[in-house]
C-alpha cells in the first residue's frame, strides 16, 4: 500500500520510495531506507500534510509525496 493510505497511529515499514530525485535525497538524509519503521501521528486537512514518526523524530510530508512511498503495514 502507499503511505498516503496508512491510518494515523498504525505502524508500517518502508518498502520503496519513488518520489522525485530531490525528495528521495531529503528522505534518505532522514534515514528513510527500505525497512525503516514509520508511523503517521498528525494530519492537517484531509491528510494533505501528515507528520510521521521516523527514527524518533516527527517529520511532515505532503500527500503528493506520500502517494509515491510504498509501505507494508506491521501487525502486532
Amino acid at each position: 500500500m502507499t503511505l498516503e493510505h496508512l491510518d494515523i497511529g498504525k505502524d508500517a515499514e518502508i518498502v520503496s520510495v519513488n518520489t522525485s530525485e530531490n525528495m528521495k535525497k531529503r528522505l534518505l538524509d532522514l534515514g528513510l531506507v527500505p525497512g525503516t519503521k514509520i508511523k503517521p501521528i498528525l494530519s492537517s486537512g484531509e491528510k494533505e500534510f501528515v507528520a510521521y514518526m521516523i527514527r524518533r523524530t516527527l517529520i511532515a510530508i505532503r500527500k503528493e509525496d506520500a502517494k509515491k512511498i510504498i509501505v507494508r503495514e506491521i501487525y502486532d
Binding site: 518520489t19 531529503r26 532522514l30 523524530t57 511532515a60 505532503r62 503528493e64
Partner: peptide
C-alpha cells in the same frame, strides 16, 4: 507546481 519538501516538528 507546489514542490516536495519535508518539515521537522521538533
Amino acid at each position: 507546481e507546489p514542490s516536495s519538501f519535508t518539515l521537522e516538528l521538533p
